[in-house]
């Protein structure tokens, strides 16, 4: 353990800024998770793999000489179809069934995707260079890569676009109606099958955006998907389904937590810290509810 960060306050500023920028990205992924959870009542363990796959699309563009920032356009388009196909192949058979079935089935997809990505892109840690430069603050004491600022801004734009789409478009309204009450929506003539496929596609597209941003700001590796899944799960259970400001806030909170834990416990314990935080939050909730003799539902 190392408490250097508390002795040098500027490090706290650095960690907070990093954490918030990172957290906005987490929130985008979590929004996708909340969407599919709320609409079709499934928990998608392969969420992280969708993110990484989306990232590899941007990385691939970088490799063939296109600026990876264009990944935020290309990746969601491709990922929408990946998501749509996944829905038609597998997910449509697990909606309406026990939640654990969706957990396990998407777990299977996640294992499978990991190895496929390993084949396609190798097992090395890669990054797509954006060459966006860095911004220095406070007399060069705080450094912010511009790619991270870019990532945060793009995430916010996509989140706003999505919210508008959900409010304004016909499909968006159908999705919201299905989330409220699938049976009523069906009776009112909503084609729930289509809604589900679109929801899963939109979620995958969001993962595609987030993945491309991760490709230029952080690193990609075929086997680092699960932590993204767990982060989104955590954010969703803290914020609740269908609470976008809550998702954004808890995403940023999580990002800041991770950056601080990096300084205090060391980077090698970062994943452990994330997973232990998940356990801690769940158990804390459980004890809080059990005083009311209730349990997490």
């Amino acid at each position: 353990m190392d408490f250097l960060i508390f002795q040098i306050p500027i490090l706290m500023v650095q960690a907070s800024i990093d954490g918030i920028l990172l957290g906005i990205l987490f929130a985008l992924i979590a929004y996708g998770m909340a969407l599919q959870w709320g609409v079709m009542n499934i928990i998608n363990i392969a969420q992280g793999e969708l993110v990484i796959l989306g990232g590899y699309i941007a990385y691939f563009m970088y490799v063939i000489g296109i600026h990876p920032a264009f990944g935020i356009i290309v990746s969601p388009i491709i990922m929408y179809f990946v998501g749509w196909s996944l829905y038609k192949l597998v997910i449509n058979r697990v909606v309406d069934r026990d939640l654990f079935i969706s957990i396990l089935a998407t777990f299977g997809i996640s294992i499978l995707t990991q190895q496929l990505m390993n084949f396609a892109f190798g097992s090395d840690v890669v990054i797509a260079q954006s060459n966006f430069g860095t911004t220095m603050l406070f007399n060069y004491m705080v450094t912010i890569p511009n790619s991270k600022l870019f990532a945060a801004v793009v995430s916010i734009i996509f989140a706003i676009l999505l919210v508008l789409y959900m409010r304004r478009s016909k499909l968006g309204r159908a999705i919201r109606a299905t989330a409220q009450n699938p049976r009523a929506a069906k009776i009112l003539g909503v084609d729930t099958e289509k809604v589900y496929a679109a929801t899963f596609g939109i979620n995958a597209a969001l993962c595609g955006v987030a993945g491309s941003l991760i490709a230029i700001t952080f690193t990609l590796h075929p086997y680092v998907g699960l932590p993204y899944t767990v982060r989104s799960f955590m954010i969703v259970i803290i914020a609740g389904l269908g609470n976008l400001p809550g998702v954004a806030l808890s995403g940023m909170g999580l990002g800041v937590f991770e950056e601080f834990s990096d300084y205090i416990f060391g980077t090698e314990f970062r994943i452990a810290a994330v997973f232990l935080l998940l356990v801690f939050i769940l158990v804390y909730r459980r004890f809080k509810l059990s005083r009311k003799r209730e349990y997490l539902k």
Binding site: F100, I237, F269, I271, F275, L278, V279, R286, Y295, L296
Partner: peptide, 27 residues
């Protein structure tokens, strides 16, 4: 603490525990 969780919360919590344990052992 853990078995007071039900359904998917239990499943995900135990997943978190197992991965955290591996990561901790590695440190």
């Amino acid at each position: 603490g853990i078995l007071g969780l039900r359904g998917h919360y239990f499943a995900i919590c135990t997943l978190g525990l197992a991965i955290a344990a591996g990561e901790l052992a590695g440190g």
